[in-house]
């Protein structure tokens, strides 16, 4: 089949960027969306043009690297599916696909369909862990965790950090992502001791990263490849509310958000430097 791909092209983060239309003939219905882009890129390279830059790695829906908007829906029309596992049989011959990167202030563009998602790392860095150093652990069965609780934690822990929730939210809110990690750790007995501290720190960082707020409309969970439930946001809100009023000390130290991907240190004495 034949498809019309209208793809957002942007050379660098400061460029303006624009849509460019490409026709891809011989699209096989068995192909994944990313393989369709591979095919397009091969023809672009052969023509001497720059291929479309897009993020991808495992191509089996778990690493969370890939993702873009297809016709206004994050990860495209199939529920619970990342673009790397989205096969082309879901589209019709001759259809036009509008392909756009995630758009949010916190996810500034890098190139074409690639955006910077380090804000997510910052949120985890602020407190998305259980503070246990290597070697400190008691026997695995010393802490009993009921199956219900383990399952609930796993539902939240399944998050792959792809950013589709932010992309789909009209407010560009990261509540589902942050809530998923808070819920994962807060329902487990191992995570209880620092539940308050974690909620305060992660929420503070989420807000510092200039994400929008949650209006509970549920677009995020609709596009989530792992179908993380909206319930995790309530867990975050509950932990935050509780911690805000019961915690004895005040703290809301946050990490400064990134605003660009810096050029990095220049070599001091470079033998072959061209500049």
């Amino acid at each position: 089949m034949k498809l019309q791909l209208k793809i957002w092209r942007q050379r660098t983060s400061t460029d303006k960027g624009a849509f460019v239309s490409y026709t891809v003939n011989d699209v096989d219905p068995e192909m994944s969306m990313l393989e369709c882009l591979d095919v397009l890129n091969e023809t672009l390279i052969e023509r001497g043009e720059e291929p479309v830059a897009f993020e991808h790695d495992c191509r089996e829906g778990i690493c969370g690297s890939c993702g873009f908007m297809i016709n206004g829906v994050a990860h495209g029309p199939e529920r619970a599916t990342t673009v790397c596992q989205l096969t082309m049989r879901h589209f019709k011959d001759g259809q036009e696909l509008v392909i756009e990167p995630w758009r949010a202030r916190a996810f500034f563009p890098i190139k074409d369909l690639i955006v910077d998602r380090r804000a997510f790392d910052h949120i985890i860095e602020a407190g998305g862990y259980i503070s246990v150093s290597t070697g400190q652990a008691p026997d695995g069965n010393a802490i009993l965790v009921g199956k219900d609780i383990a399952d609930q934690a796993m539902d939240a822990a399944a998050c792959i950090g792809c950013g589709a929730c932010v992309a789909a939210c009209p407010n560009a809110s990261a509540a589902l992502f942050t809530g998923a990690k808070i819920a994962h750790l807060s329902v487990l007995p191992q995570g209880k001791p620092e539940r308050d501290r974690r909620a305060l720190a992660m929420v503070a960082q989420m807000n510092a990263e200039e994400f929008g707020n949650c209006t509970s409309i549920g677009e995020c969970t609709g596009v989530c490849p792992k179908e993380i439930p909206l319930e995790v946001i309530a867990t975050m809100n509950r932990d935050y509310l509780r911690a805000s009023w019961t915690r004895r000390e005040d703290q809301s130290e946050t990490i400064l958000p990134f605003t660009e991907w810096s050029t990095g240190s220049k070599l001091q004495s470079d033998p072959t430097s061209r500049d």
Partner: peptide, 18 residues
């Protein structure tokens, strides 16, 4: 705040779950 959180909007956006 929400307006600032997405300075560049989508050319096309569909609601699927709300």
């Amino acid at each position: 705040r929400n307006k600032r959180a997405r300075p560049i909007g989508y050319s096309r956006k569909e609601a699927i779950n709300s």
